[in-house]
């Protein structure tokens, strides 16, 4: 069995009496790809931020790459694609990547930047300011940014949202290739079909708790939709009747 990349034991995050995430047990091994489904406010983003070590857990323990201490150095092995693109509108595509290459201490930065621009098919746009990019192009560049330092663990927060079908296909293709290369992927999404296209495991979060997990095999999308409605549906009714 592959070594664990993420080991969360009774992991939680809260402030005062309000818990954003509670008592989560989760093991993700190298080469796994995990989809996290759940309604808004279920704690998905909180979980990703905990995994990215930008948020410190208030309860339980989290080990990444088998290391008990979450040093900033671990972030060299983690690539994060967040809600925002993390890109500067006034800088060109290449300048943005070069900047992040410097932050992450990437060797041979120039070659790596060119490589990543080719990978996301933006070489022709390398010297254009990001402000002039379409949403899909910006998301591709954001992906190149997250992949730039060749991380072992990829964390993607709603990567498919706001993309046209063509861009979604392209993104799925890139992620599937990364998965085949043995990268570990954790992504959150509302899009059950796209999520399952890329991932071989799934969990459902609701109200800060893990209410369902797939084990080692994921169901078909139609089946998954039924499970989702069963697990999440009831509390959704509660929220709507407010």
């Amino acid at each position: 069995m592959a070594p664990p990349v993420i080991e969360a034991i009774r992991l939680g995050r809260g402030f005062g009496s309000v818990r954003a995430l509670g008592a989560l047990d989760l093991v993700v091994r190298a080469g796994d790809s995990l989809a996290i489904f759940g309604p808004n406010g279920a704690g998905k983003t909180t979980l990703l931020k905990l995994l990215a070590t930008v948020l410190a857990p208030t309860d339980g323990t989290l080990r990444l790459f088998g290391e008990p201490e979450l040093r900033p150095e671990l972030r060299r092995r983690i690539g994060m694609l967040g809600h925002g693109s993390f890109l500067y509108g006034d800088l060109t595509a290449a300048e943005n990547l070069r900047f992040y290459a410097a932050l992450f201490g990437v060797e041979n930065a120039e070659r790596r930047v060119a490589e990543m621009l080719a990978e996301v098919r933006l070489t022709a746009w390398r010297d254009r300011p990001v402000r002039t990019f379409s949403r899909g192009m910006e998301q591709r560049l954001a992906l190149a940014r997250a992949f730039l330092h060749a991380p072992d663990l990829l964390l993607l927060d709603e990567p498919f949202s706001g993309l046209d079908p063509q861009a979604v296909l392209h993104l799925q293709e890139i992620l599937t290739r990364a998965h085949r290369q043995g990268k570990t992927i954790v992504l959150t999404t509302h899009d059950i079909e796209s999520g399952l296209e890329v991932c071989d495991r799934a969990v459902i979060l609701c109200g800060g708790r893990m209410v369902w997990h797939s084990g080692r095999s994921v169901p078909a999308p139609s089946e998954m939709v039924k499970i989702y409605q069963r697990e999440v549906g009831e509390s959704h009714v509660g929220a709507d009747s407010r």
Binding site: G16, V18, G41, G208, S235, R242
Partner: peptide, 14 residues
Amino acid sequence: EDEIEAIHRRIHPA
């Protein structure tokens, strides 16, 4: 106040 907020969220998850 803090406890009321927590109870509210437990009854009505976002």
